[in-house]
Nucleic acid binder design. Structure first.
Lengths: 142, 142
DNA sequence: GCATCAAGCTTGAAACAGTCAAGCTTGAAA
DNA sequence: TTTCAAGCTTGACTGTTTCAAGCTTGATGC
């Protein structure tokens, strides 16, 4: 049995479960916020990652999915008039994605909703800072 | 603009993004570990939650999904000979899910893989304990 | 200049995930 | 025993995601 001989592994398992639980709660939260604005989860993720003009590939990487998937999601956002595909200024192969005025406004509303009542609201400002530090370290390392 | 007048909100946004990033990394990690064993993410989640015999409903709750979805996933696991639907000892309506010997062995391998190279491996034991405390508080509150 | 290969994006097919409504069997309670 | 609720399954449907294939364009080497 690895259980009794390696308590460290057991602790990591438990922590892994906790992070998974939090991740799931956040996923639900994102879906709910997105639904309020008439978006799906994937669309909300795309909108959230659109911090500025970028190419399809960049967006796909930020969403950690295939470019073909990004194509699908951007299609939907474009149909809703939230995003535009423009010609890339220097690379004629690439598209430059730009949020429209409505897209930008909706993005602001989305970010507001995401913060509100988030699963992290139960932590104090100090605790949030601590958590942020740990997360940054964990993410950078991997 | 809420940005300049509310620095607190900006900090929460950043933290929210970090948690989302970690959640995504973990999702990718789970998928990769599952793929090594010939499983999908949902199948791996089900296997991970099978800490012992339980009903379909219990499993669905642990996976935080609908029972019909659990039916779908258990079907796949059953086809692979990893899990069995038995008659429930006291309630004839319910099924009792039990891992087969192969299912149990695969579960052990999965848990091992999940811990290995997890996005949390970059933290010390002490940091992991701190993180665990914060996550427990965040999850309980919401 | 031109051939070749790689990069960026799209398309179509397919699998997977997830919800919802409807239906069946069974348990529990009036 | 009648009625209602619980457990599970099925089927239809939507959304997500991946993969392979194909097109255009950029970059590299001859």
């Amino acid at each position: 049995m690895t259980t009794s001989s390696e308590p460290q592994a057991a602790a990591e398992r438990e922590l892994c479960g906790l992070v998974n639980g939090l991740a799931q709660q956040i996923a639900v939260h994102v879906r709910e916020c997105a639904a309020v604005l008439g978006l799906t989860s994937a669309q909300a993720t795309a909108l959230r990652e659109m911090t500025g003009p970028m190419t399809m590939r960049e967006l796909a990487e930020r969403m950690s999915c295939e470019p073909s998937n990004a194509t699908f999601v951007v299609d939907k956002l474009e149909k809703q008039g939230l995003i535009e595909r423009r010609a890339h200024p220097t690379d004629r192969r690439a598209k430059q994605l730009v949020l429209t005025a409505e897209g930008d406004a909706l993005r602001e509303r989305l970010l507001g909703l995401l913060v509100q009542d988030s699963p992290l609201a139960g932590l104090t400002a100090q605790q949030q800072r601590t958590l942020q530090g740990l997360l940054e370290q964990a993410i950078i390392r991997s």
